[in-house]
Design a protein around this nucleic acid. Structure first.
Lengths: 189, 189
DNA sequence: ATAAAGTCTTGACATTTGTCAAGAGTGGCC
DNA sequence: GGCCACTCTTGACAAATGTCAAGACTTTAT
């Protein structure tokens, strides 16, 4: 498990990876079954997660119990609830495993320590932030300007992998529509 | 103009601001009138901007000419088109002044140089990324899960300042609805 | 000062999307 | 193997939102 994280970090940083073994030693493995939670609304996000294998659904729940998915995080990607993690305020989001998953978690305290001690770790963190931010800007622009059918087409063009791994219900919650509407849109493609 | 940037950086970094004067010297002033553009779709985003005074609309335009606003950037905030700036690919967004504005711009090359030479500058950049990212996560969750009236109420609760400075048309484009729908929603408040 | 352009509102109507209900199919679990 | 919970689909209808057109009003440019 840790080897995959090691390879991932090397691919981001190149050769200059002094202290990499120590950095990795702070990550603790977590095994998740389908529908296990990594984080629930109201809890503090005390860890930064690296998804080694599997898939995590990041979603919110409104007063009527409707789930809306902000993102799906697949293997070899990073995950945290940024405002809860940084400011230690209650999370608005849930993180739930879609399938059996292996995750590596580093605590907030260790994360801060590693950022301070290893400039290369901080650099990688910055890269993750840049990617996550530009990804979310994309999602905002897509979502706000397109209707449901356009969003579905966009998802098919840009995230085709997701269709092979998600239920229809989950795809609908990512598109921000009801499952019934999703069923009907499929007929219009 | 530069004094405001200096104060802003000090407020973010505290006392440890060695080299601050040199950092600031790389920022060049730009004056904008209403409806002047800082960036257009298709151009490369070659600068990082600090808004000293005024307001900038960040928006996209679809095939039918409809404008959708991702964000309004007011004075004492930072602005860039992150994916265009980092990867030097064409921008998907427009940046346009809503009112007379004063902006300080640092070129991409200088920005990279400053990040490399001044750890404190890099730290501030990271803070800006963290804030921008958590802000955009909020916007996604708000937008995807709420209907138009709920989004309007959310905006009134969380961004009340904007109403004093924006036309109805702009507010509608931020809410992702037509101006007519916005007019009607106001009656339901 | 005046004309032109743009904004805001309102009404009528079309389209999109949601809600509720029912039934067929699917997969997990004992 | 059989039951249970869940998903997916379909139909009927309701609610939300968009589009188009018109008129009053405001702002901008000359």
């Amino acid at each position: 498990m840790h080897e995959i994280l090691e390879q991932h970090i090397r691919s981001k940083l190149g050769k200059d990876t002094e202290g990499l073994e120590e950095v990795i030693s702070y990550f603790k493995p977590i095994q998740l079954k389908r529908n296990d939670y990594l984080l629930r609304e109201g809890e503090l996000c005390r860890h930064c997660y690296f998804i080694v294998d599997g898939a995590i659904q990041v979603f919110t729940v409104d007063g009527a119990g409707n789930e809306t998915t902000r993102d799906f995080i697949l293997e070899e990607n990073w995950l945290m609830e940024i405002s809860s993690f940084l400011q230690q305020v209650p999370s608005k989001e849930f993180f739930r495993a879609i399938a059996t998953s292996q995750v590596l978690a580093v605590s907030r305290d260790h994360f801060m320590e590693l950022s301070a001690r290893f400039p290369q770790f901080e650099k990688m963190y910055r890269q993750i932030l840049e990617l996550s931010y530009s990804h979310s800007v994309y999602r905002i622009n897509t979502f706000v300007s397109m209707d449901a059918l356009e969003r579905l087409r966009w998802m098919m063009d840009n995230q085709p992998k997701l269709f092979t791994r998600l239920s229809s219900k989950m795809i609908a919650s990512y598109l921000g529509i009801s499952p019934e509407t999703y069923t009907r849109l499929k007929g219009k493609l």
